[in-house]
Design a binder for these strands. Structure first.
Lengths: 197, 197
DNA sequence: CGGAGGATTGAAAGCAATCAAGCTCAGTGG
DNA sequence: CCACTGAGCTTGATTGCTTTCAATCCTCCG
């Protein structure tokens, strides 16, 4: 029943007719929109439990592809215009849409931070809360996406992401096992960084 | 029936229990969230026809106040959890929520532009399409908000907004009657500016 | 007429982007 | 088994744009 996506495989494109909404079951997907000049804005990452592909005027407003191998379950979204037909799907989609709005607003606050390092810290806190795992007394973040994805999410360059992470490493706030495996040594200082103090 | 708001008057605050959603009938409202350090992020402006105050987990996720004197109509949003009770309100709110997501995504693209002048041009194009008025062969924008509001919407400073507008004025792309009344002399060049060409 | 808030302009400083060069590691093929 | 390759990550030096700080202007309103 779930549909499997290989890394980099597309689920839908911008302005495709939206026949389905998709529930992410495993893996991570990336919702992006393209600038006229070819640059990319990452709008959001979809983690397990997220509902992605909400339509606007019957079409997808972003494109979506897999950051890692992923599984998704498709739900027809024809009935969205008629809440009486399928009230339970309707409620779920409504809740997802309202949550999405709230998440996008949080994303704005992230982009509105002063320094690049504050944005990166805020992003890491987000991942920590969302997909952090316990490792002894510390917590670990498996970063599924690469530096360019993070850069396009935060409106920065990959070089700047790298420099911020290096800075956290030198300050002993985090340690890197490899480029995609981060141990958070000092959560409270990371949260302080995210708030500019 | 409509509720009147004076300039600067608040309609609701962040994390207020969301008992109503509000339809803007006249005037302009401002949806904002605050950073820990007191800085302000303008999430959106609400123009006539917009539905504002959509709840997340039963609470307002932003604060809302009037940019100009405004009128709003309140709609109870208790029934949102039960689509079968009031299908028509439910459909309206669903459509508004999905539109809002799309608008927020457009806002991201605006923030993702390279230069301050591109962001300002994009913002002016948005206003032009939304509230532009014909004036002879030209089109006019009445800017209801001040430079700081625009700055907080675009993640820039008021000075930078001012400089960008001056730049457009010197390039004969726009003319200012006063600080809040802009004549667009060359729409296509303004759109080009917004896209970095 | 005078005051105040917002807008504009100017000069200087700060921070991220850019350009460019190594580095690491996984995958590949000899 | 190891050299080769390429992609992604890191680091360095420089450039350039926005911010910051400050002064002035303007306009509306008391």
């Amino acid at each position: 029943m779930p549909r499997r996506l290989g890394e980099g495989q597309h689920l839908f494109f911008e302005s495709d007719p939206a026949r389905f909404v998709y529930e992410v079951v495993s893996g991570v997907v990336r919702l992006t929109r393209l600038h006229k000049d070819g640059r990319r804005q990452v709008i959001a990452f979809g983690f397990p439990g997220d509902l992605v592909g909400l339509p606007s005027n019957g079409r997808h407003s972003t494109e979506c592809d897999a950051v890692t191998a992923a599984e998704v379950v498709a739900h027809r979204c024809d009935p969205l215009g008629r809440p009486d037909r399928d009230p339970s799907l309707h409620s779920v989609v409504m809740a997802a849409a309202l949550d999405e709005i709230s998440m996008l607003q949080d994303h704005f606050l992230m982009l509105g931070r002063r320094l690049a390092s504050e944005k990166v810290a805020a992003f890491l806190c987000l991942l920590l809360d969302r997909i952090g795992e316990a490792v002894g007394t510390y917590r670990m973040i498996r970063l599924p996406m690469n530096r360019s994805d993070i850069a396009d999410y935060l409106g920065l360059t990959p070089e700047t992401i790298s420099r911020s992470i290096t800075q956290f490493r030198e300050a002993k706030i985090v340690a890197l096992e490899d480029a995609h495996t981060m141990i958070v040594l000092d959560v409270s200082r990371l949260r302080d960084m995210a708030e500019g103090s």
